[in-house]
Design a protein around this nucleic acid. Structure first.
Length: 425
RNA sequence: GUGGAUGUAGCUCAGUUGGCAGAGCGCUGGAUUGUGACUCCGGAGGUCGAGGGUUCAAACCCCUUCAUCCACCCCA
């Protein structure tokens, strides 16, 4: 039996890697333009870091972590998300003592979940964290930054949902109100909802069950419980989005799965990817840094699911062109010129650094080589046959224009502008 | 953890009542001297997911198991 890949962990094959590169480079360039600097973090952290930061009771910590004891009998965990480790690093390095720090990271995260479309056990996130700013201007700038990434990628079908969770007290008070309200109408709840009553009552408000809609409509709304400062924060946040022409939906039921969030939370969603439509999520975590032992510092972060963005790019058929070489080099099938041909092409690569040359490798008749040349997508074929090598020339054939005449280059004059011109595409 | 679907060539998939393992694409050789695309003729490539059972005979029926996909839950 051949050894197969581990469930939920995928190989990113050459066919897709170009799109990955596109998403990553687009995010990188935009983050740079908004003043974010890269931070590179370990995959392994101490287990208690995540338990503390994310919350012992969350699904992620209670049943989805890849944890194990190392040889020193210390429990380590493969990071299930990026923020906890990033905050740990920033506190450890003293970065939170600046007026503001903006960092971004990119890498694999691990959660032991049942796989389905858009949900893998090893998945990739590009995340950004900004510490030191408690005002809503940074919240809005982060959303604008993300919008700029979508625009750059040509993704125009994402909807932005926002909400404010207030502070911890807000959520606690609302949760109790919600539980007592739903508890009073227990008879109208379906089985799923009764199960969630203790674990996650806010989720009940998301139910699609038509029999419960009137009940849900009357339920206590989190936004009504916000303290004054959170309300003002949320209002100002929305005002900046409005001024910048950002469309959004206030979703009072939007909650995040990790405990550290407060105030502003947001998600970018698509309906083109099946059930897992959240492509990017984020929010404030103003008390996390202090809880991690740092000086009390406000902070906000986001993370985008690169796997999902890549899939969305493929669904939208945005630019799936395979990268093609510019010049395919056909050499004499006899093998007599193999040594010299490699030398010539090496000189050409230096003389024309913008041009991508693909040597024919692994022998083959002229016929076979031209078939490969055609299939490669190259514009030009450079023919280094035995006759040409004797006369120190090479033939350039245009593979995309039937009527173009074949041209000849002088192999003694490879560095000349004339040669470069003939080979430029 | 709970449902449902699917496993046959590198890929996408046919395979009738149980009766020789198939197609398209891809790969590869050829169709008169060293030239691709369109066309034509060849070739290679299979433990039919795995194990067991029924049968003269199993890709097909039965049992077990593994894997994949989709969904619930939850999240990026």
């Amino acid at each position: 039996m051949k050894i197969q890949r581990v469930k939920g962990m995928y190989d990113i094959l050459p066919e897709q890697s170009a799109i990955w590169e596109r998403v990553e480079s687009s995010a990188l360039a935009t983050l740079k333009a908004y003043g974010y600097q890269q931070i590179r973090l370990p995959v392994l952290e101490r287990t208690k870091l995540f338990a503390q930061a994310i919350g012992q009771e969350t699904d992620v910590v209670s049943k989805e972590m890849y944890s194990f004891d190392d040889r020193n009998n210390e429990s380590l965990t493969m990071r299930p998300e990026g923020t906890a480790g990033c905050v740990r690093a920033m506190v450890q390095a003293g970065l939170i003592h600046h007026h503001i720090s903006k960092v971004w990271y990119n890498g694999p995260m691990f959660r032991y979940e049942n796989v389905q479309r858009g949900r893998n056990r090893q998945f990739y996130q590009i995340g950004g964290e900004a510490t030191g700013v408690s005002t809503p201007d940074i919240d809005a700038e982060m959303v604008l930054l993300l919008q700029a990434v979508w625009a750059d990628l040509g993704l125009d079908n994402l909807t932005l949902e926002i909400n404010s969770l207030g502070d911890a007290e807000t959520r606690q008070t609302h949760r109790q109100a919600l539980q007592s309200y739903l508890g009073e109408h227990r008879s109208r709840l379906d089985d799923d909802s009764i199960r969630r009553l203790d674990s996650n009552p806010l989720r009940i408000l998301d139910s699609k069950n038509p029999n419960m809609q009137s009940l849900i409509a009357e339920a206590p709304v989190l936004l009504d419980y916000l303290d004054d400062e959170s309300t003002r924060h949320f209002t100002d946040f929305k005002a900046i989005l409005d001024a910048c022409g950002v469309e959004y939906v206030v979703n009072p039921c939007l909650v995040r799965g990790l405990d550290y969030y407060n105030r502003t939370v947001f998600e970018f969603k698509t309906d083109a990817l099946g059930a897992q439509g959240t492509v990017c999520g984020g929010g404030r975590y103003d008390s996390l840094i202090e809880r991690q032992g740092g000086r009390a510092t406000a902070a906000i972060g986001f993370s985008m699911g690169v796997d999902r963005l890549v899939e969305l790019m493929m669904v939208c058929e945005n630019n799936l062109a395979h990268p093609a070489p510019d010049v395919y080099v056909v050499i004499d099938p006899s093998g007599k010129v193999m040594v010299e041909a490699q030398h010539v092409v090496e000189q050409l690569r230096k003389a024309c650094p913008q041009t991508v040359f693909q040597m024919n490798l692994g022998a083959g008749s002229f016929k076979a080589q031209f078939k490969r040349a055609d299939k490669s997508g190259a514009q030009l074929a450079l023919v280094l046959g035995e006759d040409e090598m004797v006369s120190r020339t090479a033939v350039i054939k245009n593979l995309r224009d039937r009527d173009a005449i074949e041209r000849t280059v002088d192999l003694n004059d490879l560095g000349s502008p004339h040669t470069s011109h003939l080979l430029s595409v």
